[in-house]
Simulated scan of single mutants.
Amino acid sequence: MKGKNIVIIGGNSGIGKKVAEKLSQNGAEVYAYSRSFTGEQHLDIEKDFEALPNLPETIHGFVYCPGTINLKPFKRLTIDDFRQDLEVNYLGAVRTLHFLENSLKRSLLRHLLTPLWPTLCFLHRTKKVQLKKGIHLVE
């Protein structure tokens, strides 16, 4: 991972923080953003954004691990509860991938790590990229 530029969304705690630490220990340049960070590393993934400060032109990997989980009994879950979870867990990843697409294309080694559903497919140019088991090569 030495010299590779990796973007982590949700890198302030839990899995994201541990991934950031491991990548840094292995020589990667880590660019972590989170809604709980302050300053330039703050990112509210539920809103559209036009910039992520301090990013290099080429990104070699993208880790998406912010998350919400609503532990209410199903009977008490509202449509708004589901919308918020979808906004963070799904649409936030799509927003970020749209933003990073050109930076990821500049790299010959492109990896995506995300907890998105295994059958989710993205169209990338004319190729379909199917996501399986969390680690994916974006061609």
Rank of each mutant, 00 (worst) to 15 (best):
S36C: 09
S36G: 07
S36P: 06
F37K: 11
F37L: 08
T38C: 01
T38Q: 11
T38A: 07
G39L: 07
G39Q: 07
E40K: 14
E40D: 15
E40A: 13
Q41L: 03
H42Q: 15
L43A: 03
D44M: 05
D44R: 03
I45Q: 04
E46V: 05
E46T: 15
K47F: 06
E50L: 11
E50I: 11
A51G: 00
L52T: 04
L52F: 01
P53K: 13
P53S: 13
N54P: 00
N54L: 04
N54M: 01
N54F: 05
L55I: 05
P56L: 01
E57V: 00
T58L: 01
I59G: 00
I59F: 00
G61S: 12
F62M: 03
F62A: 03
F62R: 01
V63P: 09
V63E: 12
V63A: 10
Y64P: 03
Y64G: 04
Y64T: 02
Y64R: 01
P66A: 09
P66E: 09
T68Q: 04
T68F: 02
I69N: 09
I69M: 12
N70K: 01
L71C: 01
L71S: 01
L71M: 09
P73Q: 13
F74G: 12
F74S: 13
F74Q: 11
K75F: 11
R76F: 14
R76Y: 14
R76A: 14
T78P: 05
T78N: 05
I79F: 10
I79Y: 09
D80I: 07
D80Q: 14
D80Y: 04
D80N: 13
F82C: 11
Q84H: 14
Q84S: 11
D85H: 07
D85A: 15
L86M: 15
L86H: 13
L86Y: 14
E87W: 06
E87R: 15
E87A: 14
V88C: 03
V88P: 03
N89C: 09
Y90A: 09
Y90P: 00
Y90Q: 10
L91V: 11
L91R: 13
L91M: 12
G92N: 08
G92D: 06
A93W: 11
A93G: 14
V94Y: 14
V94E: 10
R95E: 04
R95D: 06
R95H: 07
T96V: 14
T96S: 15
T96G: 06
H98C: 08
H98V: 10
F99A: 02
F99T: 02
F99Q: 03
L100M: 11
L100Y: 09
N102L: 08
S103E: 12
L104T: 06
L104R: 01
L104Y: 01
K105Q: 11
